[in-house]
Design a protein around this nucleic acid. Sequence first.
DNA 1: ATATGTGCAAATGGTTTGCACATTT
DNA 2: AAATGTGCAAACCATTTGCACATAT
Lengths: 159, 159
Amino acid sequence: MPSRLERLCIEKGLKMTDQRRIIARVLSEAQDHPDVELLHKRAAQIDSGISLATVYRTVRLFEEASILERHDFGDGRARYEEAKDDHHDHLIDIQSGRVIEFTNEQIEKLQKGVAAELGYKLVGHRLELYAVPLSKDNDDETALSGRAKRAMPAGGSDK
Amino acid sequence: MPSRLERLCIEKGLKMTDQRRIIARVLSEAQDHPDVELLHKRAAQIDSGISLATVYRTVRLFEEASILERHDFGDGRARYEEAKDDHHDHLIDIQSGRVIEFTNEQIEKLQKGVAAELGYKLVGHRLELYAVPLSKDNDDETALSGRAKRAMPAGGSDK
DNA sequence: ATATGTGCAAATGGTTTGCACATTT
DNA sequence: AAATGTGCAAACCATTTGCACATAT
């Protein structure tokens, strides 16, 4: 059965190739926020002939068709997520790299208000919370294992 | 007279070279959020011998010394701003590219609350509002002139 | 004097692209 | 058949780095 993303592609009249079908399926089934490399790896597991370039092209195509969302969590590469209607923001666990989705109506409203006060109409926003698990041993700032360099923003540590 | 940033460098015991002094001054005097290329251009106006590499190294050094903030507004290059005590977020005018700073205590509080509810301690955040000026002719989505590609996030258009 | 900074050019890493061939409509 | 997509390798662009030389302490 076609994945949700594949169906959307067809609705939009996109030419459906094997590669796109597979990438669409991989994206539809993803529960995380994979980067292109990971998508390629997953797609290649289904059909090893898919090239990295095609994944890049497809992901861009889908994004332009508004059926895929691109995120930039500050670690250099882009991460992707199937676009659903439910808008949400992200909390990034800087110890494990895990990304948690959340929504907060109040914050959304306040954002619109802030823009209005400054004489603007809000057309988009980006809100990311960088955090560490409560509980136990959180005294070290050693985190973000692996390659992720300088991922956390400077300003917002809250006094 | 030494720039504020130069003074901070000295306090931190950083070795002060001509280049660093100049870059510090350029940063201290900047009213905008320049990228490395622009910083280099401004620094070169004072001493044309400063290399791009040095600007990159200096900017990184300053950031690690917490006297400079790096921002990523989604257009590929990093933008910098002297670190002051006053924390603020940014509203990006996607028509002109202008960046406006703002603070909102309520939003800050709510963020901390959201993190807490999810079992996390907030250690940083990133909030950017992408907006267009109210008033007149806002019907076109043609914006972000120049090289800036795909700068606005997908999700947050607010219903 | 010693440690550290600098310029230059080459290297990196994620992403894009030109081209000849393959596939979808 | 016409238009478009794909793989490969080369190109891009922001940023980093190795090296020989220069400078701050």
